[in-house]
Design a protein around this nucleic acid. Structure first.
Lengths: 231, 231
DNA sequence: GCAAAAGTGTTAATGTTACACCCATGC
DNA sequence: GCATGGGTGTAACATTAACACTTTTGC
């Protein structure tokens, strides 16, 4: 049998696509890199795994460090793993990408490591104004497509909203993430007709003009039957 | 700022959930381990990444070594990445799982490394008779669920079939993977009505009794609109 | 009252389901 | 002919889509 070379040893980075909606536009959290490689360049937030900390724990730690968000209110899921040879001079690095969906917070970005972090708006194609370091442009595209697909089959859109929200706010999430207008009456019926998507509260919210909108909370459903397909 | 510990160095294994249909039942490729840990136990086939070989290349190499399949005819996609501390005495190991869907081949399993490999039938819950080593039972469950979901939205069911197939063969794929019966006339219309799913050929195939079935080839569609949802 | 935003009613178009029935073959 | 599996027709039913219209507020 042929002599087998030893397996490569990798550092494993967890990189985060953190999406939120601000001012009716989709934004991604971006950091300005403070060290080589790509010093001064834009990148997704991320950090290395140090056992016994697992992937999810690393992702949550990075997330709270960079945004001050607490992980209990947001949606976090693994996207996929990327290996790029020569992507880092320190040696072989694998990147496990995570997608996080966060509500728009009163505290935009704060904390110790977060001085270099900011919310960057995305254009209709899901790209930032400046290209990102490493293969982070590809990770961002994959993350956005995952988010768009997940809205069809799960109630994850509510993760973009606060603890209570109006039907119009929820509809705006779909319209902004998908980039298409939706019919308000039909949307309202579709959501309220899907058991467990939202729970009606007795509270209402007025925007100044017009009839005040009823507020809803997130329901317990984990998936949508039937799905809410993109037009 | 606090002193930061060094990132953990990992070996990265690619583990494969290779599904096929034999004798009207779903099977997964299983190996009997030839070394520690779990010597003599059942596991999914897999191997370590050695740069410059990437994840996909490692998966394809393992696949051909274990099954003799050539990668051009089958479907291969990344599932997700698992990190389990203490899963291997040789040190920290991350597992990047891939899902492969293969047609039932005349050559069942052959080749140098494949002596210990065999097709293991799955029960209705998607489990093998004996538990698998490491966290491979979980990976198998995740792979099966991904396959079931993918059948709804993509034409990947054809990857279970040969280069040409009858409508009934394709329908059996859905019935076996989902574990539900489907109405043959409606299935036929649904598939032929989805442009790009299959391409009609002039050939037919007879099974002895009954009207010979038309043969189809795979089309070029990458997704199904509208989807073919599980009942 | 009037404008604005939320929510309901109604109908046509579309898609799904169930199943009766015809077609093409082996024996 | 007759059994068997492939394939088409058709009508009931459910879902979706479009949009008119009513409700409830601020000014």
């Amino acid at each position: 049998m042929a002599v087998q070379r030893l397996p490569t040893l990798f550092q494993i980075a967890v990189d985060l696509v953190i999406l939120t909606i601000r001012d009716d536009r989709l934004h991604v959290l971006q950091v300005v890199r403070g060290k080589d490689p790509f010093l001064g360049g834009r990148a997704l937030p991320g950090g290395f795994v140090r056992l016994p900390e697992g992937l999810e724990a690393t992702a949550l730690r990075e997330l709270t460090e960079e945004t001050g968000l607490d992980g209990s209110t947001l949606h976090l899921e693994q996207l996929r793993t990327y290996i790029a040879a020569d992507r880092d001079p320190r040696g072989p690095v694998a990147s496990v990408a995570y997608l996080a969906i966060a509500p728009n917070l009163p505290t935009p970005v704060a904390g110790t490591d977060a001085a270099r972090a900011h919310w960057e708006p995305l254009d209709d194609a899901g790209r930032t104004a400046d290209p990102l370091a490493f293969d982070h442009d590809q990770i961002l595209v994959d993350g956005l497509e995952r988010a768009r697909a997940k809205l069809e089959f799960t109630p994850v859109a509510a993760a973009f909203c606060g603890s209570t929200f109006t039907m119009t706010e929820l509809r705006r999430v779909y319209e902004i993430v998908w980039g298409v207008p939706l019919d308000p009456p039909n949307f309202h019926r579709k959501i309220t007709g899907t058991s467990g998507f939202v729970v009606e509260t007795d509270a209402h919210r007025a925007l100044g003009a017009g009839r005040p909108a009823r507020l809803y909370r997130r329901g317990t459903a984990k998936s949508l039957h039937p799905p809410l397909l993109r037009p």
